[in-house]
Design a protein around this nucleic acid. Structure first.
Lengths: 253, 253
DNA sequence: GGCCTTTTAATAGTCTGACAAATTGGCGAT
DNA sequence: ATCGCCAATTTGTCAGACTATTAAAAGGCC
C-alpha cells in the first residue's frame, strides 16, 4: 500500500520479470524495463522510485539483481542513488540519450516525431563532414567494408533483415573511415536514425526508392578521395532520407 | 601467483581500494579505476580479466561490489561478461567514449594529442550549427543562463574554478538552446574539449588571450537571432581555441 | 581418422540474510 | 530562532551458498 504513492502517467510494469522475458540476464532485462519506463515518462524527473526492499520483493527478484540493474541505469545518467533519500530519476538533460542501449530503449515505443527530426538534424550536421573526412583518410579495409555492404544491400534490398543490417554497416564503416574516434562513436546514434527511417519507408511501400544509387555515389566519391563530392553526395542522401521520412510520418500520423 | 598471467603494458593497480580512495562509493571507485586502466591500455581489447572470486579477493572487496563495478563498465560498452568465458574488454570501437564519465576517465591521464584534435573536430562540426539553431530557437531562460555565465567569466577569468565552470556553463546553455535534444547531449563531450584547451592555455601563460570578447560576440548574435552571424562567430571562436591549444601542445611536447 | 554426442568443469548469475555507513529530518537544548 | 545532537531510513557492503550457462574436453560412433 506504500510504494504506490507517487505515480507518473501510464502504469509501471510491475509484473514479475522472470516468467515473461526469459531472454538475457535478469539485471539486464530489468534495466531494460525500467529504462523504457523512465523514457516513456512512467517515472518522471525527480521522482524517487520505491526502495530496494520493496522493489525487489514486488518484482520477485533478489536485491542484488535489482541493484545491478540500477547501477546500469545510473551509468547511463538516468538515475541517481543516495543513502536515506533513495534512488531518483535525474533531469532529462543528463540522460545519455546517445548511448546505443538508451537509444534502443527509446525506439522500443514509438518515439516522438520531434526526436526523430532531432536525430536527422544530427545526421545532417555530422555525416557530410564525416564523409569528407573519410574521402581523405579512408583505409583499404574501410573501402572493402563499404563495398561489401553495398553489394549485400543491392542483393537483399531493405526488405530483408540482412539488407537493413548492410545499410547500417555501410554507415558505420563510413564513420570509422572518418578517422575521428569521437565522430565514429556517434555511429550507433546515426544508425538508430537510419533504421527508423527505413522502418517508416517500409510501412509506405509507395515511397520505395532504391537506396543503392545514393549510397554508391557517396562510396565512389570516398573511394576516389574526392572530399567535396563526398560531402555533397552524403548531404543529398541524408536530405532525401529526411524528406521520405517526413512524408511517411505525415501520412501515417 | 595466478591472476598475473595476461598483462598489458603498464601495471594494473591492484592495491586494495578502500584505504586509498575514500571518496565516493566502493563500486564507483572501482569502476573508475578499472575504466582508467582499460583506457590506458593496462587491459587490452579482447583480454579477459581475472574472475570475480580472484578479483574481489585481490582487491579486498566483496563480490557484489566488484560485480556492480563491472555492470557500470558494461553499461558503457567497455566490457562484456559471459558465463564460463569470463569478463573481457570489448573492441575499442564499441566503447562509449562520448559518455561524460568515460571522457572524464580519459582525461585522468594525459590523453593523446590525436584524441584532443578529434574532439576539436567534433566541436568544429557541431558547435557552429548548434549556435545557428540557438539563434533561431533560444528561449529567454537560455539567454539569461548565457548572459549570467558571461558575467561570471568576466569577473573571475579562467584562472579560477568558478570562471572555468562559467565557461562550461556558457557552452552548455548554448547547446541546450539549440533546441535539439540529441545535439544537446553532446554538451558534456564539448565541455571536455573546452576544459582541456583551457588547461593547456593555463600552462602557457603567454598565450593568455581574453576569451570573453569571442564568447560575447556569439552570445549577441544568438540574442539578436542572427543565425548566420552566430554560426560564423562560433566557428571562429572554436578555430581560435584550436589554434591556441595546438600551439601549447607543440611547445609543451 | 574424423564427426557427432555426452560429460564435465569453470564462470558468471542469482539468492538470502545480515550488518555498516551515510544522511536526512526532527527533536531538544540553549 | 538557531544550533547541535539523535534516531530512523535507505543505500552500501559483506559472506557464503546454490543455479544456470557454456566452452572445452572426453567419449562413442561411423
Amino acid at each position: 500500500m506504500n510504494a504506490y504513492d507517487k505515480r507518473g502517467r501510464g502504469d509501471a510494469t510491475e509484473t514479475p520479470l522472470r516468467h515473461h522475458m526469459g531472454q538475457g540476464r535478469l539485471h539486464g532485462a530489468l534495466a531494460h524495463r525500467l529504462g523504457v519506463d523512465i523514457l516513456r515518462g512512467v517515472y518522471r524527473q525527480g521522482q524517487t522510485l520505491p526502495n530496494e526492499m520493496d522493489s525487489s520483493s514486488t518484482l520477485e527478484i533478489s536485491r542484488s539483481a535489482y541493484r545491478e540493474a540500477i547501477r546500469i541505469l545510473a551509468a547511463k545518467g538516468m538515475v541517481e542513488s543516495r543513502p536515506k533519500t533513495g534512488t531518483r530519476v535525474t533531469a532529462r538533460t543528463r540522460w545519455n540519450i546517445l548511448d546505443p542501449e538508451v537509444l534502443g530503449w527509446m525506439f522500443e515505443t514509438e518515439p516522438s516525431e520531434k526526436f526523430i527530426l532531432d536525430l536527422f538534424e544530427l545526421r545532417l550536421i555530422t555525416e557530410p563532414t564525416a564523409a569528407a573526412f573519410a574521402a581523405q583518410r579512408r583505409q583499404p579495409e574501410h573501402i572493402e567494408a563499404m563495398d561489401h555492404a553495398l553489394i549485400v544491400m543491392a542483393q537483399q534490398t531493405l526488405a530483408t533483415e540482412a539488407g537493413r543490417q548492410a545499410d547500417l554497416d555501410f554507415h558505420d564503416a563510413l564513420m570509422q573511415a572518418s578517422g575521428n574516434e569521437a565522430l565514429a562513436s556517434l555511429s550507433s546514434s546515426i544508425g538508430a536514425a537510419v533504421a527508423w527511417s527505413t522502418r517508416y519507408k517500409q510501412r509506405m511501400a509507395a515511397l520505395d526508392r532504391d537506396p543503392v544509387p545514393d549510397h554508391r555515389a557517396v562510396f565512389e566519391a570516398i573511394a576516389r578521395g574526392d572530399e567535396g563530392d563526398a560531402r555533397w553526395t552524403m548531404e543529398s542522401l541524408v536530405r532525401l532520407a529526411l524528406r521520405d521520412t517526413q512524408r511517411s510520418m505525415q501520412k501515417l500520423g
